[in-house]
Computed example of a mutant assay.
Amino acid sequence: MADSGVMDLRSDTVSGPSAAMRRAMADAEVGDDLFGDDPTVIRLQEQAAALTGKQAALYLPTGTLCNQIALHVFARSGHVVVCEESAHVGTHELVSSAVLSGVTFRTVAGRSHSLLAAADVAAALEPIPYDVAVVDLVTVENTHQVGGGTVMPPGALAEIAAVCAGRGVPLYLDGARIFNACTVAGVPVSRYAAQASAMMFCLSKGLGAPIGSVLAGDVEFIEEARRLKILFGAGWRQAGIMAAAGLIALAEGPGRLAEDHANARKLAEGIAAILPAHIDLDGVQTNIVFVDVAGTGHPLVSWAASLAEEGVLVTIVAGKIRMLTHPDVDAGGIDTALAAWRRVAAGFGLLAPAPLR
């Protein structure tokens, strides 16, 4: 919990840098990353490439920029990218993709908790007679944020990769929270990365760094990505100050994600006791919790505003209340959040009766 007494569950991007990160940032050896000579950035990129099993990696300010650069490399203007219908790249980034790369999307309805299946991807890649659409790329988001932070198993991704390979279409992995998926699946990130032509992951989400994401792929891909980084205006300078925190995040972040998952489960189960008909516990697999307050007689904005008045900050995503656990939320913070949920539900006249003993 922040010193202000506010429990911020809006995203796992809101956590502050750890003491170790602050020390590393203060002591970072730096150069000018635009010229490619910042030693701390170089070290981070080398470690990221080794971790993912890719030939090279590129440190970038945001995950969205990683995605947009990848789309620009893989897809020609006027061509099509296949993604799940609620995927970040095809919704939140839709306009960016149109402006920067001139691409559009062929969306596929996910199955359970928005997860794609190989058969659905195969259908999306079937040529349509007399259609001018050309599919240049398939993207998969893992974990899937709108799906509830759900995890695509490595085998399912391998099946999609096989479909893509059979059609000669590259597969790109939007792995913003891939380390959360690895924690659940019990596999190294390289297991997922091996199925994709390129991938990205965020340092600034559950891993706890204050800024930055990494794009990984083969040498030719990263060389072009570096050119596009400058073209798109992201040629930063002494980026090693931030990369130093990213190195700490890579070293220490993955090992503590299970704690975030446990706190999210505790939060979800606590809300299920308050509003039993409004949460899908099966969908809570990682650090994301969605609460569907439709049918409560009170609009989403009223729930969000009332929770904020009680000191709990949430977001509204896909027509639901969304909350994420992160390094600044401990078990005691979950108790605080649940107490706020109970007060708001009681104020709305919705508090479930206590179970009989």
Rank of each mutant, 00 (worst) to 15 (best):
M242I: 13
A244G: 10
L247K: 00
I248P: 01
A249L: 11
E252M: 11
G255K: 05
G255Q: 10
R256G: 06
E259A: 01
D260Y: 02
D260S: 09
H261F: 10
H261A: 15
N263W: 06
K266Q: 15
L267F: 10
L267G: 04
E269G: 08
G270N: 08
A272Y: 09
P276A: 13
A277I: 15
H278G: 07
H278N: 12
H278R: 11
I279T: 01
L281W: 06
V284Y: 00
V284N: 00
V284K: 00
V284D: 00
I288M: 14
V291D: 00
D292K: 08
D292A: 06
D292W: 02
V293D: 06
A294F: 08
G297M: 12
G297P: 02
P299V: 11
W303N: 05
L307H: 04
A308G: 12
E310P: 06
G311P: 05
G311C: 07
L313N: 15
T315F: 06
T315N: 14
I316N: 13
I316Q: 08
A318M: 13
I321R: 00
M323K: 15
T325S: 12
T325L: 10
P327W: 00
D328K: 15
V329W: 05
D330F: 03
D330Q: 12
A331L: 13
I334L: 11
D335I: 01
A337N: 05
A337H: 03
L338H: 15
W341L: 03
R343F: 12
R343P: 10
